[in-house]
């Protein structure tokens, strides 16, 4: 009898902690899921310029993004496959091939006339960047990288001035 009671208590302990975890786990799991369904911008960076939404990793099409001013292809030595760059007035879109589809790899800012979705533009200072995006960046020389899911924003800051902004998608 004694034995049973003790083992029961032990099991109760394990199972009840398990049950708590189930409850917490349910919450923990379902919350980010819901957010994801509601709004992707919480888990990934999406660039919005005026009314145009440029989603990294999505399929590229001229119908959506307009005809470029300039187009260039950079072959890599030895291998087939091209890095394609579409230059528009204020930015460049770089694409990559994925399962036969052309998808957006990165968006590079060319002009201070446009801003990131969070309102930072070329020419702003470091303080503006950190006050907008926080200090949770990776720093390599002058390069500051903010990561969210499979996307990132990269800033290059020289002499306290942002000289380069690029939205990037991580391919695997």
């Amino acid at each position: 009898m004694n034995k049973k009671i003790i083992i029961s208590i032990l099991l109760l302990l394990v199972v009840s902690i398990g049950a708590i975890e189930v409850a917490v786990g349910f919450k923990g799991e379902s919350n980010p899921k819901k957010e994801e369904e509601k709004d992707n911008s919480n888990s990934e960076y999406v660039l919005k310029i005026n009314n145009l939404e440029i989603k990294l990793g999505s399929e590229f099409s001229r119908e959506k993004y307009g005809t470029e001013l300039e187009y260039s292809e950079i072959p890599s030595c030895a291998f087939e496959g091209l890095d394609k760059t579409y230059t528009y007035e204020y930015y460049e879109i770089n694409t990559f091939e994925d399962n036969g589809k052309e998808k957006i790899l990165s968006v590079y800012f060319l002009d201070p006339n446009i801003t990131t979705t969070e309102n930072v533009s070329l020419g702003d200072d470091l303080e503006k960047m950190t006050s907008t995006y926080g200090t949770n960046y990776e720093k390599n020389d002058n390069l500051y990288t903010y990561k969210k899911g499979k996307t990132s924003i990269e800033f290059i800051v020289e002499n306290d001035t942002i000289t380069s902004i690029e939205y990037k998608y991580v391919t695997d």
């Binding site: 187009y71 260039s72 230059t87 590079y108 390599n140 390069l143 290059i156």
Partner: peptide, 12 residues
């Protein structure tokens, strides 16, 4: 030659 992407700023 046609064109290449604009010269970019580098981290270093």
């Amino acid at each position: 030659y046609t064109s290449f992407p604009k010269e970019r700023r580098l981290p270093t």
